[in-house]
Write a protein that binds this DNA or RNA. Structure first.
Lengths: 166, 166
DNA sequence: GTGAATTTTCAATAAATTCAAAAAGTGAAA
DNA sequence: TTTCACTTTTTGAATTTATTGAAAATTCAC
């Protein structure tokens, strides 16, 4: 496999991996394309490379910017906008964690908050109360762990942290 | 809100939370229903409670059993099968982690394995090589951390672990 | 063993999501 | 102020995924 073939395979596969991640295929492909590109690309170049429509390219580029995975890069004297991917993988990991926490964990915390304390009046209800209580316990632990992760630096995660729990 | 209302709200909301999790609405609702029920339920009771078809109920019950979140419970003298949810929340967390690792992380590891080493012949390709190398680093770290989580016990996660990284 | 009760399978359909094309908007330069 | 290059939004078509309904297979109480 030549390096170019590897790049192509990466873009292609990243697209299908994305769909297991709740990220649509095009969004993941654009991300991959920008990741493997050494220079900023314009919306036009992205659309041509991936053979997608302008609209589709635009929407997914915006979404990537929202996620903080892609930045605009303005080139002086050019009206056109260019885009560049966040290549610091630690930053990428954190951005993804932030989004997924928002989408997946926070609704659970909200639900638990809405439901509030369950005052069990009999044996039956006690079981329900326990489910809620435990769920709360683990959700909060996961929440604070992720917050810590988001605020931590890469070395903490890759180095110290791993040694500590080995 | 009465306890019954809380149960209903929980079942309802767990369904929509599920869909943010790559778990379909019905599967999550059945899970929630069994979680809040103090006695085992039959497929028929589940189908009636959630107003879904037999086929749908059956398929999603099977999926929950595959995930290890629900068990059969046979009542002597009864032909019918009854189902009961895994109520140990730590076990639930682990089961979900196992499934998501399979679906989300493992494809990335496979891709990286397929792509292999990138031998960068110029400055441009070096950037690509670095993206792949870093991605490999973090994917492996996440992988081993999750493996450890899966094999750990609840106290490790809730207690010691949290103190260590505080 | 038989047959009613129950579970499983699967083709048809419905619903949700993704995507492309076209229309509308924006703002810089002529 | 008009045009041009580009961006954004909207819409409906295509694709994918979930659900139903009904037939087929299985099970076990009798």
């Amino acid at each position: 496999m030549t390096t170019q073939e590897k790049k192509d395979k990466f873009v292609q596969s990243w697209g299908s991996i994305g769909s297991n991640w709740g990220i649509n295929r095009t969004m993941a492909q654009i991300h991959a394309l920008l990741l493997v590109s050494s220079k900023p690309l314009s919306a036009m170049e992205i659309k041509n490379e991936l053979q997608i429509s302008v609209g589709n390219a635009n929407m997914n580029i915006r979404a990537l910017i929202d996620w903080g995975l892609v930045h605009k890069e303005l080139i002086p004297g050019q009206r056109k906008e260019f885009f560049i991917a966040e290549k610091d993988m630690w930053e990428v990991v954190k951005r993804v964690v932030i989004q997924r926490k928002k989408k997946e964990l926070e609704p659970i915390l909200r639900l638990l908050n809405d439901v509030g304390e369950v005052d069990a009046k009999d044996k039956d209800e006690e079981e329900f109360a326990k489910v809620i209580k435990d769920l709360e316990l683990y959700s909060n632990k996961v929440d604070s762990t992720l917050d810590r992760l988001i605020n931590a630096d890469s070395n903490w995660f890759v180095g110290t942290f791993m040694k500590m729990i080995r």
